[in-house]
């Protein structure tokens, strides 16, 4: 015979409230460390950066409130505007090169089937490399002396060695090309995934309907790939706008400032010249430009998704 206590709780049992509270605490405890680290290391410095941009700080010494002085002198300097212009050239030049290459690579990967995975892996190898090491490597490739690889290739076409990196006209395109060499395949990952989402039946149907290969590309592939292309554009824009390591490694902003982007200017002002007040002002300007770009892409992306959904 099983006897059941008439009523009441057995001693040493937790109350429901205690158990529920303990359950809620577990979640907070588990998320807590990640949130704390992210806030401490990513959010607080952002606010401190804004604060510092309003102060005169030089060589780690805070010399007091400066109001908008840092920004005023920054924008009064024509070099700043030139740097912003070069940042835009670098960013959109790299995009103009990387996105079509990535799209071609993604299409090739799809067409090649199983071998496509091998191609994607090969193309991604530079992405696994350090930007500064990539810069070092290309400096050697582009070395304008008879033993350099690039000079030798030119020589087989009967051309004299060219010193691309110390040529004010060619330095920027070269830096862009090296940055794209390292990163375009990353964009190809996302575009390949996007292509994989397009139903194969659509192409069969279009072929039955008599569309040419070109028409199939422009009427099916491009519109259905648009969301992936926008993701790629936004990720690469932010990454190129803030690219500094390749420039440090290849040209150090030269020759004659021809590769001094805003990102490099920040490095120079804040870390080399140690003018941290002004450097933070540049960081704030960069942050705002980043914000504008991100918001712009989110708008574009959001509209696109809304329109299709």
């Amino acid at each position: 015979m099983v006897s059941v206590p008439a009523s009441g709780t057995t001693p040493f049992t937790r109350s429901i409230e205690d158990a529920a509270r303990a359950g809620r605490r577990v979640g907070t405890t588990l998320v807590g460390p990640a949130v704390l680290v992210v806030i401490a290391v990513n959010i607080l410095p952002a606010f401190f950066g804004f604060y510092s941009s309003l102060r005169k700080i030089f060589f780690f010494g805070d010399e007091g409130f400066a109001g908008l002085d840092n920004f005023r002198s920054l924008f009064a300097d024509p070099l700043t505007w030139e740097a912003i212009g070069r940042s835009l050239i670098f960013t959109f030049g790299a995009l103009a090169l990387a996105v079509p290459l990535a799209l071609l690579a993604a299409l090739a990967v799809r067409e090649l089937g199983a071998r496509g995975r091998i191609l994607l892996t090969i193309l991604l190898v530079p992405w696994a490399m350090s930007p500064i090491v990539v810069a070092l490597l290309w400096k050697w490739i582009l070395l304008p002396s008879p033993g350099g690889l690039f000079a030798s290739i030119l020589a087989t076409f009967g051309m004299p060695p060219a010193n691309l990196l110390s040529n004010p006209t060619w330095a920027m395109p070269t830096v862009i090309a090296v940055a794209v060499w390292r990163t375009f395949a990353f964009a190809a990952i996302i575009l390949t995934a996007g292509l994989g989402q397009i139903p194969k039946d659509l192409y069969k149907a279009a072929a039955v309907d008599g569309l040419t290969a070109m028409e199939r590309f422009s009427r099916i592939t491009v519109p259905l790939l648009a969301p992936s292309i926008l993701i790629v554009l936004s990720m690469l824009t932010i990454s190129y706008f803030n690219e500094v390591q390749v420039i440090i490694g290849l040209t150090s902003g030269g020759p004659i400032h021809s590769t001094t982007t805003l990102a490099y200017q920040l490095y120079l002002t804040g870390f080399v010249e140690l003018d941290q007040g002004r450097g933070n002002a540049i960081a704030v300007v960069m942050f705002l430009i980043n914000l504008v770009l991100i918001v712009g892409y989110v708008q574009l992306l959001g509209n696109k998704k809304g329109g299709e959904g």
Partner: peptide, 17 residues
């Protein structure tokens, strides 16, 4: 949001901190 903040722009204030 933190993923889309370029960490490079935060280095200078981080250095001072």
């Amino acid at each position: 949001g933190v993923m889309s903040i370029p960490s490079y722009a935060l280095l200078l204030p981080t250095q001072v901190i």
